[in-house]
Design a protein around this nucleic acid. Sequence first.
DNA 1: GGGCGCAAAGTTGTATACAATACTGTCCCG
DNA 2: CGGGACAGTATTGTATACAACTTTGCGCCC
Lengths: 228, 228
Amino acid sequence: MNKIDDTSWSRDAIAADLERAIHEHRLPPGTKLGEDDLAEAYGISRTIVRAALLALSHRHLVQLRRNRGAFVAQPTPREAREVFEARSLLEPRTAHSAALRMTEADLALLNANIRDEHAALDAGENGRALLLSGQFHLEVARIADQTTIEAVISELISRSSLIIALYWRRRAALCETQAHHALLDAFARKDGAAAEELMKNHLLDLVASLDLRNVAPPPASLREALQR
Amino acid sequence: MNKIDDTSWSRDAIAADLERAIHEHRLPPGTKLGEDDLAEAYGISRTIVRAALLALSHRHLVQLRRNRGAFVAQPTPREAREVFEARSLLEPRTAHSAALRMTEADLALLNANIRDEHAALDAGENGRALLLSGQFHLEVARIADQTTIEAVISELISRSSLIIALYWRRRAALCETQAHHALLDAFARKDGAAAEELMKNHLLDLVASLDLRNVAPPPASLREALQR
DNA sequence: GGGCGCAAAGTTGTATACAATACTGTCCCG
DNA sequence: CGGGACAGTATTGTATACAACTTTGCGCCC
């Protein structure tokens, strides 16, 4: 209903649209994604919606429960740790490669990204800021020219957004843009080793800002029941 | 037709069955996977088949071409390099963790795996040997108790099987089991550093045994035309 | 005889109808 | 008054019908 139904939405377009909404915390963890609702919203049949939800479930952004429907995923503390563990294996080395391949155009793009993120934060658009923050990391992987790793990181970043929604402790907004700024400096100097180290510490800081005590499943079934 | 249709196949069961067939090189790269054919083979409607094919396409094992159908993926040399690049970022450290957590039961399982692989090679069942070889790597990730990384590695291993089908240069069968045996020794000693180094070199050896010159796309559209 | 165009067949894309399962509220019984 | 069973409602699972597109083969024209 709030979606533009001028053109017909493709499966991938719907999946991307939903992923963005999840990433921006417009669809919080546990939200029920009813097939009829989505079909009506996008002006298409359930067939396409189901395919899109299946795609998102493969990215661990949506949990499918047989005969019960699709819900925005709710990563456990364990899953949260694992996601950042995987990122810490992939992203520092990727940042290293990216630093060595960095061009002026790439630097400008990353710089614009940081600026936009800051603007979003000032405007109170936290969801949009989080999305831009993720895009910064994704852009680094793209610059490293590693399509396969980029795809993996893309999924991990989106999952990280869900993790932040559930386990974020204190608002360390400044920390974020600061870390990205420091990375940008290393990139500008084409200092691979520094970029690698900065990325590694950045990810460690991110995990440190989470509260992953095992009392996690409160939003699990309780919230889900209320959500609908 | 050759499939058992006693019980009804689920989407995931079909996807797993197809993935196994691809992994074992029973379905070589470029093979057309017609929806009607599969639906008849498994005794279900195209609905489920389409969902399974969509799932496999998300694992990069199947390439979907709009209005043309599904084909077993044909990784490019570049993609091949990237897959092993990703594996070399993930698996050595994972082997390290696995070594530290190794139990007697785990060792027995890995040992049995190597034995089975050897038996398969002796029997000339190369596809089965390749599957078992992949399972060895997957088992290591499981032992490391990293579900998320395990899922990523699982996909990369299956893709590696496609890469081997396309770019394998010489049969270095012995090398394979030798490397796994050396890893097993390190695991038995709970020597994480050694396991990490062995895994790293094992993956380098694998890439070295490939012929990734950019004359790759011969099997691309030519073979696809003949295949059907 | 070669090349273009059109028509027919086959395959995939999408929507919809129906079946199966889970949820909700009510009624009856203890 | 509380608990359990049952029926109604709603939602998801699967199959099928139809539409759109691609491919293929034939025929006509140049």
